[in-house]
């Protein structure tokens, strides 16, 4: 696994963080579910992806200079047709450091955050929590030392205050626990392998439904990668390409 991931991490050394297309490639190598997507440098590639996979799609700007995509309006979801996609592509292409557009299928489910960090005292640790914009407000998370066993993941889920969002609540469908356990174990094993190459990873949101647990957005920060670069708590996210039930938000 490390052999395949290493070149992608090496390529990000200069920017200090791995941009979304490569971050998702890394996750896919580790066997983690990511949406169907294409990293499109030209418009015809984007149109061809949407043509093959079908509308609606989500589009996100790719630029080494833009870590907060939402802040610069660099995320558009629910793009319904060719004309709309053309317009978005044109606008993104004029942004700072533009290298392409990440076009993706739309995914739905309960919003979770899955994270990892190489802790000074304990080495690789993994986090699971209620994801979305509110992560730093609710602070409803569980942390465990990697690698994880199935029982660890189950204990993490049951320690969350809002565990009902995962286990099913007022008629809302429960998350596929098997898929979530699989994702967490696979992710923790990946983190064990690349722990000395990363500072932290945010998968936020991970969209979990009865069918799948899929990573809607991912960011990998390399050691010292964003030294002093972000001094406030990071609010960048793009969960809007997902369909959340009203219960899911409450």
């Amino acid at each position: 696994m490390l052999k395949k991931i290493k070149p992608l991490l090496d390529a990000a050394a200069e920017t200090g963080w791995v941009m979304e297309p490569d971050a998702k490639k890394i996750l896919a190598i580790a066997g983690i579910d990511v949406p169907e997507s294409a990293y499109c440098r030209r418009l015809d590639q984007a149109l061809s992806f949407a043509g093959t996979n079908g509308f609606p799609v989500a589009a996100k700007v790719v630029s080494p200079e833009i870590i907060h995509k939402s802040d610069v309006d660099g995320v558009v979801v629910g793009i319904e047709d060719k004309a709309a996609l053309e317009k978005v592509f044109d606008r993104f292409s004029r942004m700072d450091g533009f290298t392409g557009v990440h076009v993706e299928e739309m995914v739905a489910g309960a919003e979770l955050i899955v994270g990892a960090k190489t802790d000074y005292q304990f080495g690789p640790v993994v986090m699971l929590g209620i994801g979305g914009t509110g992560v730093e407000i609710y602070r409803d998370t569980a942390i465990k030392m990697a690698p994880l066993k199935k029982a660890d993941v189950i204990a993490m889920i049951s320690s969350l205050t809002a565990k009902e969002l995962i286990q099913g609540y007022r008629g809302s469908e429960a998350v596929n626990i098997g898929k979530l356990v699989g994702l967490m174990i696979g992710f923790s094993e990946m983190v064990m392998e690349i722990g000395d190459r990363i500072e932290s990873i945010d998968l936020n949101p991970v969209m979990c439904s009865a069918d799948r647990c899929v990573v809607a957005d991912a960011r990998i920060i390399l050691p010292g990668g964003l030294d002093g670069g972000i001094s406030t708590i990071d609010q960048d996210r793009d969960t809007s390409n997902t369909c959340i039930t009203s219960e899911g938000l409450l």
Partner: peptide
């Protein structure tokens, strides 16, 4: 006020990790 680069780095601070790993 140490700079934090991600949600995880912010939520999994040194003490949070210490405390939860001990429990584990």
């Amino acid at each position: 006020s140490r700079a934090v680069s991600s949600h995880t780095a912010s939520l999994a601070g040194d003490y949070e990790v210490f405390s939860q790993v001990l429990r584990q």
